[in-house]
Amino acid sequence: MRDNAKSGALTEVTFYILLSLYTPKHGYAVMQFIEEKTDGRLALGAGTLYGALNSLQDKGWIAPCRDSEGRKKEYLITTQGKEIAEKELVRLNELVRIAKGIIGGTA
């Protein structure tokens, strides 16, 4: 599975990483964020997380920064990354609205 730039559909890993980085975080905090939010359903391996962070950095969706002590490497979402995440939210909302109309939602 890969991120589809045209339709804007993101993989779950990508979307969660982007969401986690609205505040600066280092690798371990990103991993914890995702595990907590998904109740442990999505547990990322450190090697997979490393690859994902690097490819998002290459795309310019996130950028590295130093933490206050300047020791651990932290990441933060970029303006471009935010645009991508917001577009995906709009797309998902549309999808949910249409699905609810057909399947019948709880709302």
């Binding site: 599975m1 547990a43 391996g45 450190a46 090697g47 997979t48 690859g51 994902a52």
Partner: peptide, 22 residues
């Protein structure tokens, strides 16, 4: 790589795409 045992399995590569590359 050594991790303190927290009872969960210790895997570095979890997504299929990443496993393929490794």
């Amino acid at each position: 790589i050594e991790k303190e045992n927290d009872g969960k399995p210790f895997e570095l590569h979890t997504s299929h795409k990443d496993k393929e590359n490794y």
